[in-house]
Amino acid sequence: MSISDEVLILKFKRGDKSSFRRLVEKYQSKVYSIVLAMIGDKNDADDLSQEIFIKVYKGLTQFNGRAKFFTWLYRITINTCINAQNTRKRKPETILMSYPVGEKENPLSTQLSQDTVRSPMEILENKELGMKIKLAIDSLSDGLREVFILREVEDLSYKELSKILQCPEGTIKSRLFRAREEMKKKLTPYLGE
């Protein structure tokens, strides 16, 4: 097992700056995934993720440890994303552009752009489906998107989600239900039976 967040934070407070690196490395993919799913633009997502960890770095000495670290981290993440959305216009079409469609299925001439980050599943299978899902997530109503993304990224319990998003558990439950209904509507032709 890896060292717990609590221990890393304690070490950080005592002056061991390398433990911050370990925290970043532990959470960078999840934070980045959440931000990318929320914002939709790769460059913005990278900047915002860095911004989030700078906030964490500055706040960590004051972090009291009564709440779980990841609850605090994800709250910062979501708030930063929502603020960013309010200040800049969202650009949903950029998602489309970063995931090329209709690529030739010729094993000899697999031409993939070098900087396209894609999951292994997309590479081999369900390429189109992967994109449809991203679009469906992207078009979730505000308020539903963040709870859905958080839940999928980190299998968090409703209790933890309610702490991060600062709303009652019942609200989490009904929002997740509604989010999935919306997803289902958009994806019905692809879910098969």
């Binding site: 993939l112 070098q114 292994p120 081999l124």
Partner: peptide, 20 residues
């Protein structure tokens, strides 16, 4: 899918294959 999940989500390159 579980097997695919063992791969990290990193960019992919298609290696030029001298086959044609």
């Amino acid at each position: 899918k579980e097997l695919y999940n063992k791969l990290p989500r990193i960019p992919s390159i298609s290696k030029k294959f001298p086959l044609p």
